[in-house]
């Protein structure tokens, strides 16, 4: 075998390098570049080192937003993952009209654009003309998301659950469908209870899709922007101002490019860190050696 020594293989890799460079590396480096400079205008930039990062880490409003964000994302996961699994377990299997109908119905919310979802709930929850708001008002509950932080919060959360639980359910459903019938038959013969079937067959077989579901829902909810923006613009007060909201205010509202860039990088690292933690936990619990 003659091994040809030349560099033609680079031609195959260069397109990928270019795409990755322009889609990820270059924008990211731009942000890094901004994050270490004070920018007054075109050509008026000064290197400031880590000052922006220090400012970001000391920013109280940012701390509040981060805490709010973490609570929000955890709430989303705690509601959507179990609910999605439950829905998937209850869905009809096999190829029937019932199955197709269920799948289409479940997929519907996923097809609606974010800001439309926000608008739907914004109107739905209005006390004067919205079905939900008016119903609450009629039965004597003073529901008002524009001046009650808890109401605004719950509305954003319910909106997210309504919008995205389907995704979790569909993923879990796919996981469940891949379990061969012999497993259920064997469990029946082994005298396993319904809970044991779930615990020892269905849940372990869903692990792969659950990793994806948890990561997707975490990352998405951690970057939520549109829904609270459409509903109350982050209010009342700062009650639904999550990280993205605050970042946008900083970058676009106050035109604090340097600080916003530093914030972006910290934000990115936080998402990366949490995703890594979730991924590790789920894979470990699945494969860890039992004593």
């Amino acid at each position: 075998m003659d091994k040809v020594q030349d560099n033609r293989a680079w031609f195959l890799i260069i397109p990928v390098f270019l795409i990755v460079a322009f889609s990820a590396v270059v924008p990211l480096m731009t942000v890094v570049n901004y994050s270490v400079q004070e920018i007054f205008g075109p050509g008026q930039t000064f290197f400031v080192g880590t000052e922006w990062f220090e400012a970001v880490l000391k920013d109280d409003r940012l701390h509040d937003a981060l805490v709010r964000q973490i609570i929000y994302s955890l709430a989303v996961l705690l509601i959507e993952i179990p609910l999605g699994i439950l829905i998937a377990l209850g869905m009809p299997g096999g190829r029937s009209a019932k199955t197709s109908l269920t799948l289409v119905l479940l997929a519907l919310p996923l097809l609606i654009p974010f800001n439309v979802v926000g608008t739907i709930w914004q109107i739905f929850g209005r006390g004067d003309i919205g079905l939900l708001g008016a119903t609450f008002r009629a039965i004597g509950i003073d529901y008002n998301y524009t001046n009650n932080s808890a109401h605004a919060w719950i509305t954003v959360l319910v909106m997210d659950v309504w919008h995205w639980t389907s995704l979790v359910a569909l993923l879990c459903y796919a996981g469940l469908q891949s379990i061969p019938p012999a497993f259920y038959q064997a469990a029946k013969i082994d005298g396993a209870s319904k809970w044991a079937v779930f615990r020892y067959i269905q849940l372990p077989k869903m692990r792969g899709v659950l990793i994806i579901a948890v990561l997707l829902r975490f990352m998405d909810s951690f970057m939520i922007y549109t829904e609270p923006f459409v509903l109350t613009g982050g209010g009342p007060g700062n009650s639904t101002t999550f990280l993205s909201q605050y970042l946008t205010q900083m970058a676009v509202g106050q035109f604090d490019i340097g600080k916003a860039a530093a914030f972006s990088i910290v934000y990115f690292l936080i998402v990366l860190l949490f995703s890594f933690i979730f991924y590790t936990i789920i894979t470990r619990t699945g494969e860890g050696e039992k004593k």
């Binding site: 064997a186 020892y200 372990p204």
Partner: peptide, 8 residues
């Protein structure tokens, strides 16, 4: 069964 059924 034909294919191994085990509790992973």
């Amino acid at each position: 069964f034909q294919f191994p059924v085990i509790y992973d």
